[in-house]
């Protein structure tokens, strides 16, 4: 079971659920930008939720299956064709050995996840298959996928015919949008900002900057004013944390973010809304923040996880 990369136009890497246990040594978690689409693709392909899959962004990819397998693709902003047919995302398909699978980038969205039955097999580095390009380590020799790479795949969990032709219905997917409202848990340093700044942060749109990447999502909008110092002693941080450097424009930490940071954090985007943020298009998407509580955020996260179980046979 294996897949050969015939062509890559964008940034394609191997990611699993992320690298944990090493953050105290400064090793970023990495993992998928859109955890929901990543897990949905794995679920559809009959894999463990954290199995290694391909993350494809900023351009397309063409692959060839070297043996019969089932692939599942989930995400936003791509069209999919398998052999001679065009198919929708958020579904699984039987692919015969020799067939090509093609993902082309559309004008919306950012990331798609291609899971293959049995998962991509790659030697774990620090316990994870996730690629950390700045390391560089993990995934496929620590680098982005290139033409000619051959990915090994594991054994499928069930007969391929049982795994193919399944779909996650639209109502079970996140409400992806070019103008999402993201729930935020305020703090721990929200008091570092003037009341007017906090009010502006919660009342105005922020545009996602073209300089955003897997490390951070930079925003452009009303500048926030620090009451006192613009820096604090470095402390741990996590994906979703909204750092505000001296310039006042917020930066939301994403999958490859450093483990620690020294700018005040006005709040953190909740786990359930990170997929909406991840799929925002730099230079175009406008986001708005809304205050929420830890209890509500955790409930929303659990509800989203349960939506992964709503896969139906076609």
């Amino acid at each position: 079971m294996s897949l050969e990369i015939l062509e890559v136009n964008g940034l394609a890497t191997i990611q699993d659920a992320g690298r944990t246990g090493w953050r105290k040594f400064g090793v970023p978690a990495s993992g998928p930008m859109d955890w929901f689409a990543f897990r949905a693709a794995n679920r559809l392909a009959g894999n463990d939720l954290n199995a290694a899959a391909l993350e494809i962004g900023m351009g397309g990819i063409v692959l060839r299956a070297l043996r019969d397998c089932v692939i599942a693709v989930a995400g936003v902003g791509y069209s999919l064709s398998v052999y001679i047919w065009d198919f929708p995302l958020w579904s699984s398909y039987y692919v015969r050995g020799g067939w090509t699978v093609r993902l082309d980038k559309l004008d919306s969205g950012m990331w798609a996840y291609l899971a293959v039955s049995g998962g991509v097999q790659t030697p774990p580095v620090l316990g994870s298959a996730s690629t950390y390009l700045r390391g560089p380590f993990g995934g496929f020799d620590g680098r982005r996928l290139q033409t000619g790479d051959v990915l090994k795949c594991g054994a499928p969990s069930r007969p391929l015919t049982d795994l193919a032709a399944r779909t996650l219905p639209a109502e079970a997917r996140p409400a992806y949008s070019d103008t999402p409202t993201l729930d935020v848990i305020m703090g721990p340093q929200d008091k570092y900002f003037t009341d007017e700044s906090t009010a502006a942060f919660l009342a105005h749109d922020y545009t996602v900057s073209p300089t955003s990447d897997r490390m951070g999502c930079r925003l452009e909008g009303p500048a926030l004013t620090h009451r006192g110092g613009t820096e604090l002693l470095s402390e741990g941080m996590t994906m979703g944390a909204i750092q505000v450097p001296a310039g006042g424009q917020p930066i939301i930490m994403m999958a490859d973010c450093p483990t620690t940071g020294g700018y005040p954090k006005i709040g953190t985007v909740i786990s359930a809304d990170l997929p909406l943020l991840a799929q925002c298009v730099p230079g175009r998407s406008k986001i708005r923040f809304r205050r929420t509580t830890v209890a509500k955020a955790q409930k929303k996260y659990r509800e989203m996880m349960s939506k992964l179980e709503r896969i139906v046979e076609e």
Binding site: R23, E235, G236
Partner: peptide
């Protein structure tokens, strides 16, 4: 999940599907 010590703060990562705040 894990902890990250810093100068004057310890960050504790946890899995909200397993434990509550």
């Amino acid at each position: 999940v894990e902890t990250v010590p810093a100068y004057a703060a310890l960050l504790v990562h946890y899995d909200p599907l397993i434990v509550s705040f």
